[in-house]
Design a protein around this nucleic acid. Structure first.
Lengths: 261, 261
DNA sequence: CGGTGAGTTGAGCAGCCTCAAATATAGTGG
DNA sequence: CCACTATATTTGAGGCTGCTCAACTCACCG
């Protein structure tokens, strides 16, 4: 492990860790470099907001694409992704979700269909009933601020994805995505050295990058033949981070601690 | 005018209307079908949050791409757009801004460079100092909720743009963008019948859609030769809304009133 | 009347797409 | 443990969409 021992091992988060019954013992809050600390009062407010937990198996839908979900969710462990489907079946993956990420907020203010969220691994979720959202904002303005923070952070990632899809060539997009996902997972302690349990197949990558499956495959092969990465057996290994970052125009910026619910 | 007379004429908003000295007489709040009403107390809180107004000429930068802006802004009149530039100069337009839209929120929680915002017409802005944001949330949780609402709404539009850039052909993207901008402007009362003062050139459209300038031109010409629209002299005219909506897979959904600051 | 920016058009190229088929790889039932 | 099936990956071939390069027009302006 590349991580020091003074924090709980979180490779676990990629596996199935049950969220605790009490938010007071929430594992996520123990990751001080990753998530902002929460006071006892805040934890109690979060606990009051939360209605329970939910498990979804790999491949299952957390939020249906057509219906407005009755709950918001915080991803507690595992990987998920947001997506949209066009009427003729073409799919676009909008965003990848890791532990601590909030989902379902966009639905709050929507009329029509929005997006779906699918579990990429087995996933544990904390569920928050939508009808309690406003009172949560009302009684805990700081938590409202936290939610806005998370929304703004996700929007920034969407900005980056839009730049990629709009203005970058295929190999640049692939390099960018691999680095992006690896860095985010690394920050959460889900990596081992340069290796990462990677639950996505080439169709996922293609749908995230706006490429065809075939061309995604050829691009991946080109990069791996050039020794930049290896991706097999569900493990992503970053062999030449510098070259990948360069190619993807991906600047590593310090990731600041963010709030969690 | 296609709008009934029982609301103030807002073609004005596309021109240069000076925001009032007092938020209590803010024109935007008078548009009851468009924006949620605000109580006197809320208007006072907004007025206390606001530090003043700002004018930017067409083409001027409202927010610099490299620096974190010291203020949030509400666009009061005119058009603007958010964009990002790659190190080699390629540009991607992320989002188009109309009156009532909030900008600068993403910067709040960012480290590195984020995005720039440029005025497409002369614009009037209400400025809110960043350092008052938290106390605004704290003392007016309802306004915090409103800000989250606006952020979530913008994120939904980004989702749509991402789907377009990733999974739609050029003519579909163009049709989608024309309908999208026209419908949003129409909702604000900035159109006259099927006509709209359109401040963007083909390079803007290309940069929003992830296309080259030349191909954007050829696609626009194809659609206008087919009688779907006309775009000349800074005026966009929608000639066949049904065909454009069909082509762009653009479903008109009722636009709900949103909060304004 | 030259200069600049925006729009238009043609020619040729290439990046990415679709179609097709050949391997893995994994899971399932006998 | 092996056949059988479904899913994921890989590769080739050929074609179209969208790109780059280049040139010309038009409007506007000093």
């Amino acid at each position: 492990m590349s991580r020091p021992n003074d924090r709980p091992s979180l490779s676990l988060l990629a596996q199935s860790v049950e969220p605790p019954a009490q938010c007071g013992t929430c594992l996520l809050h123990e990751l001080h470099d990753v998530f902002l600390p929460a006071s006892d009062e805040e934890r109690q407010a979060i606990a009051a907001f939360r209605s329970g937990t939910r498990n979804v198996r790999a491949g299952g839908l957390i939020i249906e694409e057509r219906e407005r979900s009755s709950h918001l969710y915080t991803l507690y462990s595992g990987w998920a992704f947001r997506f949209k489907t066009l009427s003729d079946g073409r799919r676009q993956i909008l965003h990848f979700l890791l532990p601590g990420d909030l989902m379902g907020l966009q639905d709050e203010f929507a009329e029509g269909r929005t997006h779906g969220v699918q579990a990429a691994t087995d996933v544990r979720l904390c569920a928050f009933p939508r009808e309690r959202l406003w009172s949560f904002f009302h009684t805990q303005p700081k938590m409202g601020y936290a939610i806005t923070w998370l929304a703004a952070r996700e929007e920034k990632m969407l900005d980056d994805a839009l730049v990629s899809n709009g203005r970058r060539a295929a190999s640049e997009r692939v390099a960018m995505l691999l680095m992006h996902l690896f860095r985010r997972a690394e920050h959460l302690g889900m990596t081992e050295g340069q290796r990462l349990a990677f639950p996505f197949n080439q169709q996922h990558i293609a749908d995230a990058l706006g490429l065809s499956l075939v061309h995604t495959n050829k691009t991946l092969r080109k990069l791996s033949r050039a020794g930049l990465h290896r991706l097999e057996g569900g493990v992503l290994e970053i062999l030449d981070p510098h070259a990948l970052a360069q190619l993807g125009d991906y600047f590593e910026r310090p990731i600041r601690p963010v709030p969690v619910l």
